Amino acid sequence: MTHVETERDGIVIKGSESSLTYSPRAVTLSDGTTITHESQGGSLSSVWATDLGDCYVEVVYVGDGPEGGELVVVVPADDVIIVGDLYPAGSDLDLPGDVPPTWPGAVDLAMGLTTTTTTVLTSHGQITREEFDASHQRLLGAVNG
């Protein structure tokens, strides 16, 4: 059973008892509770987890990406990871002019949460793990020359 759906307002993970909506820097539960990283005014410092009824979900702060405070969501039952803005928008070859030095490390940690069969979702759609790895290599090149 798939719990993850892409909707107009974001990526939604639906369980039998509740749901949550993902955006790159905030996760909002169906009861209105919002989870954000400390750098975004929230209380999350590293990991937060919940059971949506029949779906366990982990929200992880792996480090700052392009803006800071980006969150990653892991849905183990569906072998899905949502990496949001950690994957650059637009062409996979395009990187912003200024790549924060923390971004490649955050991507590296997020990749460590995947397997060869994991579905990777970004703010802009689904990508392969290989595309995620290739963007990681380009980020490392941009930071380290």
Rank of each mutant, 00 (worst) to 15 (best):
V80G: 04
D133M: 10
D9F: 12
K14G: 05
Q137L: 12
P66D: 03
M111W: 02
I13C: 06
Q40N: 14
L140K: 14
S91V: 00
V57H: 11
E131Y: 01
R138G: 00
H124L: 00
W103Y: 09
L20K: 12
L29H: 11
E70K: 11
S39W: 03
G84H: 05
S30P: 13
S19N: 10
S135D: 03
T6Q: 14
R25H: 12
L121V: 00
G10V: 04
N144H: 13
M1A: 14
G65K: 09
E17M: 13
T119N: 05
E5L: 14
S39N: 08
F132W: 01
L71F: 08
S23D: 09
V62N: 10
V83N: 02
T33C: 05
V27K: 13
Q126A: 14
P101Q: 03
T6D: 05
G97I: 00
V74T: 09
T118V: 09
V72I: 09
A26E: 15
V27M: 11
S43L: 08
T117W: 02
V27C: 10
V73I: 14
I82E: 02
W48V: 10
P104Q: 07
D54L: 06
G69Y: 06
T34W: 02
I81A: 08
T115D: 09
V60C: 09
D31A: 07
V57M: 09
G15V: 06
H136G: 10
M111E: 10
Y61I: 03
L109H: 07
V59L: 05
G141T: 07
G68Y: 11
L29C: 13
